Simulated scan of single mutants.
Amino acid sequence: MRYTSLGSGSEGNALVIEARAATQRPTRILLDCGFGVREVVRRLVARGIEPESLDAILVTHEHGDHGSGVARLARRYGIPVHSSHGTGIALRLPDETGVRWRPICSHTRFEINGLDIRPFPVPHDAREPTQFVFSDGRARLGVLTDVGSATPFILDMLTGCDGLVLECNHDPALLAASSYPPSVRARIAGNYGHLSNSAAAAILAAIERDRLKHLHAAHLSRQNNQPELAAAALAAVLNCNPAEILLASQQDGFDWVEI
């Protein structure tokens, strides 16, 4: 199994997960589409992916940086969309002509062409937000972005992953000194907002990490965080050099990683 980020941040998010088998074509899943169709296609092609080859689009929640391009991409290329019921309703997917929406339960695992997908609910200020763990039977990839606080269920779901994409949205001091209105700062820092670097580090410290080979700091705020701060917070938990922490950028995401 391998995965790549097409971009991560408040201006757009998209992640591709690919599971390969010797006897059939790869299964490719697009997790979120917070870019316009032309831009996400450009980013897909840059990773060697034709949009027609996507087997499904999964959506974590309805906020524009994750869901704004979902319906248009799905309609143009005939890609089915999977999301929680609340997310689908918030994105008006049942009303989108030509979109094949497939509601999922945020507590029930399912498969797409042999790729095991385990959704789990998270505290975030959206209709029914969901994050995911993916497995091809040999390796596990955990994705946790857009979450305000940890829960025991989140920690249980992320235990034993080989790869982990983990939100490090903000540094509390930078957020407090930012030009954001007080109400926005409070929302971001709240239990239904986004993870700070230290909160992400606490989650990392609380999960079993014996199999963890690749860790990516994701969804960094351009104004309220700095890459070196996020890397340092996670590296302190792993007792490694901060340079070993991979960063998902807004402009380029990160290239293919195999687990």
Rank of each mutant, 00 (worst) to 15 (best):
V147L: 01
V147H: 00
V147Y: 01
V147W: 00
G148I: 07
G148K: 09
G148F: 08
S149G: 04
S149Y: 00
S149N: 02
S149M: 13
A150S: 14
T151G: 00
T151N: 02
F153Q: 12
F153D: 14
I154N: 01
L155N: 03
L155Y: 00
L155E: 13
L155W: 00
D156N: 15
D156Q: 15
M157V: 06
M157D: 00
L158W: 09
L158A: 04
G160D: 12
G160A: 08
D162Q: 11
D162A: 11
G163Q: 10
G163P: 05
L164H: 10
V165A: 08
V165E: 05
V165D: 06
V165Y: 06
L166D: 07
E167K: 11
E167A: 10
E167P: 05
C168I: 10
C168V: 14
H170C: 10
H170R: 08
H170D: 02
D171P: 11
D171K: 03
A173D: 15
L174G: 09
L175Y: 11
A177C: 07
S179D: 14
S179W: 15
P181G: 05
P181K: 10
P182F: 03
S183H: 13
V184N: 08
R185P: 06
A186P: 03
R187W: 15
R187P: 05
I188H: 06
A189C: 04
G190E: 02
G190T: 08
N191T: 13
N191S: 15
N191I: 07
G193K: 13
G193M: 03
H194S: 12
L195F: 07
L195K: 04
S198A: 09
A199M: 13
A200H: 09
A200K: 12
A200C: 06
A201Y: 01
A202P: 02
A202V: 03
I203V: 10
I203S: 00
I203L: 08
I203Q: 06
L204H: 08
